[in-house]
Design a protein around this nucleic acid. Structure first.
Length: 884
RNA sequence: GGGAGCAUAGCUCAGUCGGUUCAGAGCGUCUGCCUUACAAGCAGAGGGUCGGCGGUUCGAAUCCGUCUGCUCCCACCA
């Protein structure tokens, strides 16, 4: 191996990824082992890799690699989502660039273009994931519009329809009068817009449709919709309008009579307290209308113009009509006043047209029973949400669920399997052939061409909610096509899901519903919610801001392992991620540290005749214990999905314990060999460390693992075992922590007094200091340590304390007595204050009476230690004063 | 407007059951070092009124109330 002082990831990464693929290491088949399954949150097929994907897939890959090394049959199923809205938008935009309008194409022509686009771009993001080291089972790659996946979706629709949970209903949609399509809520941008608040007079009717002299004032921003009014609504508690109850009023200008209704939706304090109810043109009004059985009068056509129903201003654009009607109202004496008003108005993301709420027929799935099951799944703990703070959100969603509108006015997606007869009736069947059969039962002589399939496609989530099932078997139980596939029974339920909390309802909850419904089992045991990746200023990463680095550039610059580390370092569970390239640098530096530690060890010459020195034996003993302790900690963190904590434990173990302490201990003097026993132990440790590192840094660990010892072709660290937690002696480890502190103190004194590390010094330690660490002190601090009954009260040197041990570093001729005296006096003052606080506590009878014995005993020990320290400080100070 | 969450060092975060010399970690900062693995490094140091106020308790970063500031989700008010 080349031993450059810098680790070069680009040379290494492609080599090992190709090796893994060639040996089919990522592929899983059912066998006797325990399965560990993850399904990828399928990225949009049009997507390109962004930092959110990097976060999500790094976590997925860490979990899957860890499980694989734990001996489980790990299977990570990759794939992409057809994302109807996003993809259709992209295809429409591309066609526009080519000079083709979507409206000029037939459905079939458009879909041909869309599939071409998918074939061209659809795999890009999955190829990018490979650069990150993702160990997906690529043989199992799925796409939500694969023919068999589509079949599953269609069958699911038919299944719920037959169960009576899918129905067709009328609903208010966001209508884009320029694009001539409904758009989803996500595609509506609300902007505060300067408009007017029109106060109109609605005269009370005499009962025969004639004006009386009484009127009420209704405030509205949309006077052009008064012709669609179905009622005027007041709050039942509103004293001001008590007299109005049961009366009827006349719509201005057209003088149609409408009832006064009462509904608590109306706020007494807002506007005039009178709300005109226009069910066809406002979402809330529609709901009020439903509650009060009001007629729906639709006066606006698909282009946003008034239609015949409007009676007046027919054919005028809604905004032109607004201006004209203002004048007409004024002339009729029915306009009280006009105020300036700012209110949020929805605009179409695509055409910037003002969205018109419009009623249209949509398909719905009843959610009550499904949501109840899915809530229960989480409440009873069958699926665990991590962190559990998302429990509240989840519960809120499940308890306030609305029926799911599953139809979309798009072409790219699974077309709704409903066929309409000429008479308006319809049949729901999985195929056109079956639809014809079914239709013939209604109309015996009907022909195929008499049937027309519903134009809408299904919401993309209606396919993704099946994902954990359909990737293994596209025929769900209870559905046609179910094969009782061995893959499904082996891999389902999956183990963990890693995803963002923004889709907890859209995706996670619905997958639980589908799992409960079709499998009788939740689709995963744990759901780990990542945060949203933001830049270091806390802004969401977005193309518009240009604040999102291209992950592939980062990988090229720092290496995939470094990018993974950079991502994981700042990703505590459930918190948003503040991404900063500096963290990737830290990851790269860690790679380099590992690389150089390896260079050091591989450069040692071994002398088989050498016996291990005392320091080497001690170091091996200590590191064995320390390693086991950290393994336990890392395992604990993994089990709690505290991945960044697990990484930090590994990082510190390698950098501090291993490099700064262990290797420095056993490192032979320049040109000297090392004994074989210690060398073999060191290589063994390195092997364990690499295996510990592998899930987070797959490439460098594989590279070094192969060089560390002879490996056969086809061997891989991927299938080596995770280091097993072994027994360890906490007291031994702790005594080395004390020794480290002592070493730090000596080094600090050397720096303060400008004494070279090469200058050997005497160190005297008072009390029952653990002798096992003396060689360690000796080598790392370059001192000759000596444990004694009492420290010299005089003599040149520096005293310091490590926990309860007092130490004296001999510094003949190198001491500044005045400075030492000052330091000792400061320390004495601190100790006296500390003692006083402890004694105050102990002097409080309430404390000694109420606090547990253990706590009181601890305080008494603090008191005794402190008294002892004060005594020797006083001795020291006296001695210094006498000398001076 | 409804719901949820957060506030600890310059930054990002741990802090389990209220009690161990508990106020921590990583990064950054400062100081000294190119010491034969690593300057992408080594050694050392400094840094916090645990958002404010009040309460419970022998004891509060931790529990309760309240205020302030921020974030997210839902609805976006005629």
């Amino acid at each position: 191996m080349e031993l450059s002082t810098k680790y070069n990831p680009s040379e290494v990464e492609d080599k090992w990824y190709a090796y893994w693929l060639k040996n089919n290491f990522f592929h899983s088949e059912p066998d006797g082992r325990e399965p560990y399954t993850i399904v990828i949150p399928p990225p949009n097929v049009t997507g390109i890799l962004h930092m959110g994907h990097v976060l999500n897939n790094t976590l997925n890959d860490v979990l899957i690699r860890k499980a694989r090394m734990d001996g489980k049959n790990a299977c990570w199923v990759p794939g992409t989502d057809h994302a109807s809205i996003a993809t259709e938008n992209k295809v429409v935009a591309k066609l526009k660039d080519m000079g083709i309008e979507k409206s000029s194409l037939s459905r079939e022509e458009f879909l041909k273009y869309a599939w071409e686009w998918k074939e061209e771009h659809g795999n890009k993001i999955l190829l990018q994931l490979r650069k990150l080291g993702a160990s997906c089972d690529w043989d199992r790659t799925k796409f939500t519009m694969d023919p068999d996946m589509t079949e599953a979706v269609i069958n699911t629709f038919v299944y719920f329809y037959r169960k009576g949970l899918i129905y067709r209903g009328v609903r208010m949609v966001n209508w884009d009068p320029v694009g001539l399509t409904a758009v989803s809520d996500e595609e509506v941008i609300h902007k505060d817009t300067q408009s007017k608040f029109y106060h109109l007079r609605y005269y009370v009717s005499d009962g025969n449709g004639n004006k009386t002299d009484k009127y009420i004032i209704v405030a509205t921003t949309r006077p052009e919709t008064i012709m669609a009014d179905a009622a005027v609504c007041i709050n039942p508690e509103d004293e001001r309008y008590r007299w109005l109850k049961g009366k009827k009023v006349l719509i201005p200008l057209i003088h149609r009579e409408i009832p006064i209704i009462e509904d608590s939706y109306v706020e007494i304090g807002f506007g005039t307290g009178c709300l005109k109810v226009t069910p066809a043109h406002d979402v809330h009004d529609y709901e009020i209308g439903m509650r009060h059985s009001l007629p729906v009068i639709d006066i606006i056509d698909e282009h946003g113009r008034l239609n015949e129903q409007a009676v007046i201003l027919v054919g005028e654009d809604r905004f032109v009509a607004r201006k004209k009607i203002q004048k007409m109202l004024d002339e009729a004496g029915e306009l009280e006043k006009v105020e300036d008003y700012t209110s949020p108005v929805g605009y179409s993301e695509r055409t910037n047209a003002v969205i018109e709420p419009r009623l249209s027929a949509q398909w719905f799935l009843k959610m009550d029973s499904l949501a109840a099951m899915a809530l229960d799944s989480v409440v009873k703990g069958a699926t665990r949400l991590i962190p559990d703070k998302y429990m509240a959100t989840y519960r809120h969603w499940m308890e306030n669920v609305h029926d799911w509108c599953i139809s979309r006015q798009l072409w790219w997606g699974q077309r709704i399997p409903a066929w309409y007869l000429p008479d308006g009736r319809f049949v729901v069947e999985p195929t056109a052939e079956k639809a014809l059969e079914a239709a013939r039962k209604l109309v015996p002589d009907i022909k195929a061409e008499d049937l027309s399939q519903d134009e809408d496609v299904l919401d993309t989530w209606f396919s993704s909610w099946l994902w954990p099932i359909s990737v293994f078997d596209t025929g769900m139980p209870g559905n046609p096509g179910h094969k009782a596939d061995k893959d499904l029974s082996y891999y389902y339920p999956t183990s963990d899901l890693v995803t963002g909390p923004d889709i907890i309802f859209f995706w996670v909850a619905r997958m639980i519903m589908a799992g409960d419904e079709f499998m009788g089992k939740e689709p995963f045991r744990n759901v780990y919610f990542t945060g949203i990746v933001r830049d270091k200023l806390g802004r969401k990463m977005s193309k518009q801001l240009g604040n999102s680095p291209d992950p592939l550039d980062l990988i090229a610059k720092y290496g995939a392992d470094a990018v993974r580390i950079g991502m994981l370092l700042c990703s505590s569970a459930g918190n948003d991620i503040f991404f900063d390239e500096a963290q990737v640098e830290q990851g790269r530096n860690f790679c380099n540290k590992i690389w150089n530690a390896y260079r050091l060890v591989k450069g040692w010459k071994v002398d088989e005749s050498l016996q291990p020195s005392e320091i080497n034996s001690v170091a091996v003993k200590w590191f064995t214990n320390r390693f086991n302790q950290v393994v336990e900690n890392v395992e604990d963190n993994y089990s709690k999905f505290r991945i960044s904590d697990a990484l930090m434990a590994i990082y510190k173990l390698f950098w501090d314990d291993w490099c700064s302490w262990y290797l420095e201990c056993v490192k032979p003097a320049f040109g000297q060999p090392i004994d074989k026993v210690t060398y073999d132990a060191t290589l063994g440790f390195f092997d364990s460390l690499l295996r510990m590192i592998h899930p987070v840094m797959p490439f460098i660990s594989e590279e070094l693992w192969h060089d560390l010892a002879p490996r056969e072709e086809g061997e891989t660290i991927m299938y080596a075992k995770s280091p097993a937690a072994g027994a360890y002696d906490s007291a031994l480890i702790d005594s080395f922590e004390i020794a480290k502190e002592a070493v730090n103190n000596v080094r600090g004194i050397r720096q303060q007094k400008n004494i070279s590390p090469k200058n050997g010094l005497d160190l005297q330690i008072k009390g029952d200091y653990p002798a096992v660490t003396l060689p360690f002190l000796s080598k790392l601090a370059n001192v000759t340590p000596q444990v004694c009954e009492s420290l010299p009260a005089s003599g040149s040197g520096a005293t310091f304390m490590v926990r309860t041990y007092e130490m004296f570093l001999g510094l003949s001729g190198l001491v500044d007595t005045a400075a030492d005296l000052k330091k000792a006096e400061e320390e004495l003052e601190y100790q006296r204050k500390f003692l006083a606080s402890v004694q105050k506590k102990l002097g409080n009878p309430q404390f000694t009476a109420h606090a547990p014995e253990k706590v009181v005993a601890m305080e008494r020990k603090k008191e005794a230690d402190s008294l002892s320290k004060i005594q020797s400080l006083e001795n020291r100070i006296n001695a210094l004063k006498n000398n001076a």
